[in-house]
Design a protein around this nucleic acid. Structure first.
Lengths: 228, 228
DNA sequence: CCAAAAGTGTTGAATATACACCCATGC
DNA sequence: GCATGGGTGTATATTCAACACTTTTGG
């Protein structure tokens, strides 16, 4: 190691995960109740420290898996919070990640932590600057869902168009016209209609669709840009 | 300090600045020639370590000021690069910031460092993952310039519409129709026309405009969103 | 007087929005 | 047979894209 480095400070580095889910036509956030100090008993994002031989992305994935038991989660780095006093006791710099999970894959009973899904309306106050992180994640999700097909990460493999519409209504916090929505989403060409119907939420039943990954990839190769 | 923290690794944390300028109808990047090891003699982004009592934003500002002598620079955090081997010798995690500077304010002769403006076309290979950072910064600038009035940060206080158009053409890497451009930019309502003309680049002269900060702020208060 | 850049409007195409009725089925 | 949510098309308004000529003035 050359001396150049040694004169500089080293820092604790953490990752915090904003975990979104979608259930009951609502966008939800998975929060944990801290069973350790500081701030024991308060709600917070799930986080963890970045260790020596671990990339930040790997740390975020580890944290996510340790909480949810899931791998293959959509994960995206959001922002790094490095104010001196963001954590009152010791300086910790934290990189926020946001994750989208399919709540259907999620086994709430198998959790290692006391965690709970909160709808946005009933979200409690969080420790440190976690509320700021959540706000930023919401804005990112809102914006990005318009130009990337990430909404599908929040739905099961098979979903109906009314479900998809409810999802986007929740993300964008606005009601959408169902005819226009269907027109637009089908026009993207990334949906594959199945023969099967979902019969839980209506007598008539709604056709299932799948995100058509292959078609999406070949469209992308042709220079297509997804847009809603 | 509670013991919870002590078991975790500490890391060197750096900031690297992608510094954009605009000159001669081209988007430019300010790079430094490293006069220290490792990679002495190669080109790189300007960077520095985050010290103990310094927020990351403050570190980025310090680095920028030490290079350019300028304060009050548009600065935005871009992304944090935390792969284990991004820096070959010692693990350093680096948060990239991108800065927009008005090249007119910039006194190249007063630099403390051997630095040089590069147009994008002639940009050299950079150390570590700096080229990746630059790519990401370009995409961010491209996208963000469409929904925020940040382009003006690259121009002098007074500018002409043809200059502004050349700027957006450089950022978006596409030619624009001058009638449509003028129509669109004036329609935003954020430009204030001055009586004065710029006479360097044409016989006829082009009227100077200024970004109308007050009007922009009051428009924002009314819920207006800037869009190009 | 002419070269060089500034400035100016209109038209057609494409896109977005608004809106109301029939369908299928379980109860 | 009726209540419930699924599914469909059209007309209008708005936005975007294409396009050519006149103006000014320094040399």
């Amino acid at each position: 190691m050359c001396n150049l480095y040694k004169q500089h400070a080293k820092h604790y580095l953490a990752v915090d995960c904003i975990i979104f889910g979608f259930d009951q036509d609502e966008l939800k956030l998975l929060l944990i109740k801290r069973n350790f100090e500081p701030h024991k008993g308060k709600w917070s994002l799930m986080g963890g420290f970045v260790e020596q031989n671990e990339s930040m992305d790997a740390a975020a994935l580890r944290v996510l898996e340790s909480l949810t038991g899931l791998k293959d989660i959509y994960l995206e780095q959001l922002y790094t919070y490095g104010d001196i006093n963001r954590d009152a006791e010791v300086r910790v710099i934290s990189t926020a990640y946001f994750a989208l999970i399919k709540t259907a894959d999620f086994d709430e009973t198998a959790l290692n932590h006391p965690a709970k899904w909160f709808s946005l309306a009933e979200m409690p106050e969080l420790i440190f600057d976690h509320n700021v992180m959540v706000d930023k994640a919401l804005r990112r999700l809102n914006r990005k869902s318009k130009s990337q097909p990430i909404g599908f990460e929040l739905l099961p493999d098979k979903f109906t168009i009314p479900q998809l519409q409810a999802l986007y209504e929740a993300i964008w916090m606005q009601e959408l016209d169902k005819r226009n929505f269907r027109k637009k989403i089908l026009a993207t060409g990334v949906l594959k209609k199945l023969d099967e119907k979902e019969k839980e939420s209506s007598k008539k039943g709604a056709f299932f669709y799948q995100f058509d990954t292959e078609n999406y990839n070949s469209l992308i190769d042709e220079g297509y840009v997804f847009e809603l």
